[in-house]
C-alpha cells in the first residue's frame, strides 16, 4: 500500500478487495479522472454533493467536473441545483450540487430540495463537504444526512485552513464515529481529491459498505411517538432503509413525505446495499 492511500474508512466496515498497488496510488487515479462538464448523456452512478454553506462545496464541484461555477466567500452561494459529470476508472458519475444548507429539517425551499433529492433521488453516493475548522457545526448536517442515507462519504475540506488555525482533526476517529469514509482535503489546492474520487468509487461500486452512525440517543420527549410510528412503518415496509427519518418527517407533517406514503413511492425506497447484493 502506498502512503497516499486514503485511510481505511472504518474498522467494522468490510474492507475493499485488495487492489494492486499502483492502481490505488493517487497519481494513477488522478490521471483516471476525466472532467465531463455538463456533457452527460448517460451515467453509471449519481453522486449528490451536500454541505453547509461556505464550506467549499462549489470548489469541490468545480474541481471534479471542470465547470466554473462561481464560488464566493458568502454563505449560501449555490442557489439552484447544478449538475455536472466526470468519468473515473470505468465508470461515469453524474454529480449533483445541492443547495448549501445548515440543516434538512426546516421548511425552506433550499432544504426541501436537498432533503427530497437525497431521499427520493436515491443518489448512489452522497458526498457531504464539511468544514474542518468548524466541524461541530457541520456535523449537525452530516448526522442528519446519515439518518437518511447509508451511502455517504464525508469530505473534510479546508484542512489547510484548519492547519493555519492550529486545529487538527483525527479523521480515522471521525470515520469510526460516523461509520462512513472520511477524506481530508483542501479542494482549493486540489489536495485530497484523488482520495475523494476513490472513496466515492468504492462506496458507489459497493467495495466499501457504510455502517452510518445514527442518532444514538433519541430525546425522551419524542421517543414514544417515534418508536410507535417506526413500528408501523417497519411492519408495512420491511425494506425501508431509514424508517426513523421517515417517521420523524411524518411526525412533523412533511407534505412531500405524506404524499410519498400515499402515492406508494415509499415502497420503492429500499436499501441500495440490498439491491446491489441482489443483482449479483
Amino acid at each position: 500500500m502506498s502512503s497516499a492511500h486514503p485511510p481505511s474508512p472504518t474498522e467494522n466496515v468490510a474492507t475493499a478487495p485488495v487492489v494492486d498497488a499502483c492502481a490505488s496510488c493517487s497519481v494513477y487515479r488522478a490521471a483516471n479522472l476525466k472532467k465531463l462538464g455538463v456533457a452527460m448523456e448517460d451515467w453509471d452512478f449519481v453522486v449528490a454533493l451536500a454541505g453547509n454553506p461556505n464550506t467549499g462545496k462549489s470548489t469541490v464541484f468545480n474541481a471534479l467536473t471542470g465547470l466554473r461555477q462561481h464560488t464566493g466567500n458568502w454563505p449560501g452561494k449555490t442557489v439552484a441545483r447544478a449538475e455536472g459529470g466526470y468519468a473515473y476508472g470505468d465508470h461515469r458519475f453524474k454529480l449533483v450540487d445541492l443547495p448549501g444548507t445548515y440543516s434538512l429539517l426546516s421548511t425552506s425551499l433550499d432544504e426541501q430540495i436537498a432533503r427530497d433529492f437525497i431521499l427520493f433521488g436515491q443518489p448512489d453516493v452522497t458526498v457531504i463537504v464539511a468544514d474542518a475548522t468548524r466541524l461541530e457545526r457541520n456535523l449537525n448536517l452530516v448526522l442528519q444526512i446519515l439518518e437518511i442515507t447509508d451511502r455517504a462519504v464525508v469530505c473534510l475540506n479546508l484542512m489547510d485552513e484548519a492547519r493555519r488555525h492550529g486545529i487538527t482533526v483525527d479523521d480515522r476517529q471521525l470515520a469510526r464515529d460516523l461509520g462512513v469514509p472520511v477524506v481530508p482535503a483542501s479542494a482549493r489546492f486540489g489536495r485530497g481529491l484523488p482520495e475523494l474520487l476513490q472513496a466515492i468509487n468504492e462506496v458507489a461500486t459497493g467495495q466499501v459498505v457504510c455502517r452510518p452512525q445514527r442518532l444514538e440517543t433519541v430525546p425522551a420527549a419524542i421517543r414514544p411517538a417515534l418508536t410507535a410510528v417506526v413500528g408501523e412503518l417497519e411492519a408495512a415496509y420491511p425494506n425501508l432503509p431509514n424508517p426513523r427519518w421517515v417517521a420523524l418527517r411524518l411526525l412533523s407533517g412533511d407534505e412531500s413525505m405524506v404524499d410519498a406514503l400515499r402515492g406508494g413511492q415509499l415502497g420503492t425506497l429500499h436499501s441500495l446495499a440490498t439491491t446491489e447484493s441482489n443483482k449479483e
Binding site: Y102, S103, L105, S106, T107, S108, E136, R137, N140
Partner: peptide, 11 residues
Amino acid sequence: GQERRRLLDLG
C-alpha cells in the same frame, strides 16, 4: 417560525 428554525440551525 423560520426565524426560530434558523437560530436553532445556527446552533
